[in-house]
Design a protein around this nucleic acid. Structure first.
Lengths: 342, 342
DNA sequence: TCGCCGTTGTGAATCGTTTCAACTCTGCCG
DNA sequence: CGGCAGAGTTGAAACGATTCACAACGGCGA
């Protein structure tokens, strides 16, 4: 059934070693021989067996990228960046989804370990520590993505979420807002906690400003709408004049809730709104939403860079920790009341 | 470096065959021996090598799912369904993204062929024919997803897009609308063409009804907004009283365009709006959008079922072609003008 | 004691590729 | 004409797990 090098060799009248050479170092083989072998390959429809190749090589040419949610555009963009850079290095990327579940994450990582992947790019859940240690003990390089870790021995690439939270809140404060609401959760997600902490820093610097925390159970549109209904009442009551949402999905949900129903509140007239991630839906919302943009593709490419470096790195050497700075993209949802046509 | 069965065997004082038996048929090994081997495995941190296993077995236990766009919720839901069913069968699913490019699709399929995957679930681009034939010649079962094919010899699972288009248009006509606009494109995507054709059937049955075709270059939010601006003018001019968009992203874009700017038109007062796919954004839009729902998870699970059947199937047997019927989910965007508070 | 059976364990062969030391040519120099 | 360099090719060993024909063992009935 299966066509192997042996048969190709026979057909072309050469040895298996030569077939292998044609496949991997054609310049070391005489042109006419290359030709003959190529023909045999075509005639027999030979396809190399990746498992055998890998067995011999000791490891695969595949990188694993484990993300928290494949359907989140943030992660798909990171994936695209990683794929592009990996391809340059002759590697392939496979995508896996942990759905924020530690158990699923562990299952995937075990799976990847049996496959002897060339490396793992991991957007870790809260309890990834053990799995990561295990992988590294077994010689599989790991790069943590979107998370700065205390452990200096494992490389990471992240975005400064504290800074992101700070610039978002500063922007609102500069626009004259004083009564902020932070929509996000669960706070066990460190990105959420960091963005909140950053915003809190900004609040602390401005007298008379305050921020109330409205927790969500997930970073979804639905949760945004749920909390948005609450926000609407608080805006009407004058308790809140600005909302900072931990991501754009929440922000969009909040906006939908604020704008729908009888007697909607006005954005940015009654309340300003800032999101996080700058997904395309944010720009395309009814009132385009100001958002904090992260260099998504760059995160992916950098993660692969770090992984490649990791493969050479000495045992105990400390690893690189790249931290990108986020950027505020200002849109209609945070125009200052004064500049607003009422 | 690498721990193999040999070392485990030595440590446990048994032969490699026994270690293999402990791993694969523990019930044929005496309990105390199992125990001893398990301990050795744990102490050495042994992890089986998937490549070696696969080389011996002749094929992997991985299914490949190639989709047009990973970030489209439709496909991620299909993937979830497939994963769930595959897991029951002891298989793993890896996800690949063709980005609607025939070249990328081909590259992925070649890659999967070298990996000797257990099967391929393919959401095909226009020019997938050759690749599919090649895979099947080489003994890799293929199931086409989201596409009914003329070729009876390859299994497929699809949704009846013509029926979907028809029920969408019928719903609009029943609501008293007569001047429809179809927003979608390119029409080389068969789903788009089918949905249009289905809507056309409905139009043909109702005197005095018409449908104008507004082409887009892609099924994206941005394209929806672009065409939406056009639609707004046509609505104001009384040329259009209903919009049927080829998918929800377009519908949302159209809605944003209709509602924003000075002097927005009213939905569903001035114009009704129907989308397709029933993604969560559709329900969560400012005016919740009526949409055609497809049984997404079921598509995924069924695709895997067909693939499993395919593996047993005789050479020349004809394959199953499962066609699901879509379902209309009615929301505020198509309330009839009469029942509407003006 | 012998033969037989079932249970448990053995180890060599196998999968398809890559690697590498060794070999064969060819042509050329001295 | 012997020796030699270099290009081109060879073929056996190795990677790690699985398989399977067979061996070892203990128990049991005759």
């Amino acid at each position: 059934m299966a066509v192997s090098v042996r048969e190709v060799a026979q057909r072309a009248g050469v040895s298996v070693g030569t077939v292998s050479n044609v496949l991997n170092r054609p310049d070391q083989v005489k042109a006419t021989t290359v030709e003959r072998v190529r023909e045999a390959i075509a005639e027999l429809g030979y396809v190399p067996n990746a498992a055998a190749r890998q067995l011999r090589a000791g490891q695969s040419t595949t990188l694993a990228l484990v993300v928290l949610d494949v359907s989140n555009p943030f992660f798909t963009d990171v994936a695209r960046g990683a794929e592009a850079r990996a391809e340059e290095a002759g590697l392939t990327v496979t995508l896996a989804n942990s759905d924020e579940s530690g158990a699923r994450e562990r299952k995937h990582l075990e799976q990847f370990e049996t496959q002897r992947v060339a490396g793992v790019l991991l957007v870790p859940t809260a309890d990834a520590g053990d799995s990561v240690a295990r992988l590294r003990e077994h010689g599989i390089p790991v790069v943590l993505v979107d998370r700065s870790t205390a452990d200096a021995s494992v490389a990471s690439v992240a975005v400064d979420d504290v800074a992101g939270g700070r610039i978002a809140a500063e922007h609102l404060l500069e626009g004259g807002r004083r009564r902020l609401a932070f929509v996000g959760g669960p706070h066990s997600i460190h990105q959420v906690a960091d963005r909140y902490a950053g915003a809190d820093l900004a609040i602390a610097k401005v007298d008379g400003s305050s921020m109330v925390r409205l927790d969500t159970e997930a970073l979804t549109l639905e949760e945004g709408m749920r909390v948005g209904a609450q926000v609407r009442d608080m805006v009407r009551a004058g308790e809140v004049d600005a909302v900072f949402a931990a991501n754009d999905l929440l922000a969009i949900g909040v906006q939908q809730a604020l704008l729908s129903g009888p007697d909607p509140v006005s954005i940015p007239g009654d309340v300003a709104l800032v999101g996080y991630d700058d997904i395309s839906f944010a720009a395309a919302a009814v009132v385009p939403i100001t958002s904090v943009r992260q260099p998504r593709r760059a995160i992916g490419t950098t993660a692969v860079e770090l992984l490649l470096a990791e493969r050479e790195a000495a045992e105990g050497a400390t690893r690189d920790h790249v931290v990108f700075q986020p950027e505020l993209v200002v849109r209609a949802s945070t125009q200052t009341p004064s500049s607003q046509t009422v």
